[in-house]
Amino acid sequence: MAAERLTAKPVATTPKVDRLAWLRDGRTWLRTILIVFIVFIFVFPIYFWFLASFKPFGLIFTLPPVFFFEPTFTWYSVVLGGVPYNKVMLELTGALTSTGGGLYYSVPYIIDSIIIATISTLLVVLVGTPAAYALSRFPMRRRHDVAFWILSTRMMPVVVAAMPFFLMYRALGWIDTYHGVVLVHTVINLPLAILLLKSFFDEVPFDLDEAAMVDGATRWQAFYKVIIYYVLPGLAATAILSFIFSWNEFLLTLTLTRTSVRTMPVAASTFDTATGGTEWGFLAALGTSAMVSVFIFVLFVQRHLVRGLTMGAVKG
């Protein structure tokens, strides 16, 4: 194939390349401008949220929106710095208003979210990879049906799955425990992971397994010493998606936890609809800090995400 491409390309495109180089360049610029505009639209809500986390409360309700103002670090000092809310309110207003209490300190929630998302992602990879390998490699008469069944485990509405999980967990004494939440997150992410990973494995020629085994490796060794290296980018992509889905999960975590385990989305929901009014500043600060921590992670791995997905999941 590579050879064909080498012979085909010069004939078709070489004459144009020189003459239209500037134009092509211009088109790339045009596309870049367009994409900047699109990205701006997608990033705007987050940018606005980010700004809100530095806005004094009074500026949140203004129209037209205010983009330049003297930032306040009040919300962050409470959410990340653990400064008591009462103290902040005293400094801000000279008296206590609205709410009291130290429940806004949110670093533990973010840490809980990170712990749960990380461990459940590891588990997803650990359990899902061999399953995907088997699904890809071994002769199976009902392969499609097995795959469809795996997918179908994702179809139960979360609202309805919550109750049996709650009962099961109460019987096991797993309510409000890390392993309980981790396991649930693992299971809800397994279907996507297995199906994605299966298609990555499908990309790797079957001869490789055979070759390794001819060389004396067992099936198991062929899997973890040889084949797995060919799917690493795909594995990374799967892991990232699992991480994101676990990070975002709300309803199950809410149902299965009380006070000792609390993830970011659940904590955020308590800042809302309290009788004292929605605490936009704290919400924005919590949301932004949580987002930043994941975004740094994403920034490092995004290359793997597309590259990984490219290699298999989605190939025709």
Binding site: Y85, G100, G101, G102, L103, T273, A274, T275, G276
Partner: peptide, 10 residues
């Protein structure tokens, strides 16, 4: 999550 609840828990 009401103001008095927050205050008392503090």
């Amino acid at each position: 999550s009401t103001p008095p609840s927050r205050a008392i828990s503090q």
